[in-house]
Design a protein around this nucleic acid. Sequence first.
DNA 1: TAATTGTACTAATTTAAATAATACAATTAT
DNA 2: ATAATTGTATTATTTAAATTAGTACAATTA
Lengths: 119, 119
Amino acid sequence: MLQIDYESRAPIYEQLVDKIKNLIVKNVLKPNEQMPTVRDLASNLTINPNTVQRAYRILEENGYIYSVTGKGSFVSEKLDLIKEDQIKDEIGKLKVVIGRLENLGVHIEYKIKEGVDEK
Amino acid sequence: MLQIDYESRAPIYEQLVDKIKNLIVKNVLKPNEQMPTVRDLASNLTINPNTVQRAYRILEENGYIYSVTGKGSFVSEKLDLIKEDQIKDEIGKLKVVIGRLENLGVHIEYKIKEGVDEK
DNA sequence: TAATTGTACTAATTTAAATAATACAATTAT
DNA sequence: ATAATTGTATTATTTAAATTAGTACAATTA
């Protein structure tokens, strides 16, 4: 389910954060759904539980999940704001790439069509 | 002239490679122009000469510069192919970002206008 | 002939990530 | 009640990559 790229420069905990964010925003992991337990996920991926915990802590700090000692970790309910944040992030990156292409003498005309969300 | 970002995750040698590539492709550093010497650049940036050497070695391997023991390092003559490579790279990245935006329900219409190069 | 330049090499240091090993509080299952 | 599960916290160790340090040598230039 979650694939770790050991060639990547990004640390494992950050890869987990990014991929889980995506699963949540794409509604593969749904609000209030329980996440894999820290120990289970670590075991499945054969990595250290501390590494998973680190990812979960960041996800919680960013509002993607909430955790309850003794119960588990769960996908957050309110994700609209988060999705907007991700879109802003990506559009920022888009502009950086386009800027570099301009520097190379390549002009990009583009139009953003904010999607009719799949409801 | 060359600014190092010590907060960046990218190592110093790679930051040098990227920035020098840009200066060359943008024709700020012109073909056959002499590069700063390894020791001078290291001294100016207060980094280790080995780090500069590493950057120069990579730049040479990638065809951006050529080096002659006793003389110095110089910008390559044939840079057209390299520029095309960079453009391909950036367009690849563009597509990745656009793909992620599609995943977020944002559609991007774009048109590439290969530039009328500044001659 | 001396100084400069690129290059090569080995060793040591530094830093962040990841692992290892426990421990404890809250919840759930038995 | 009691045991097992879960999140969380903490400290120490290991690992790997980047960087620094130091030295040496060949080719070129002054």
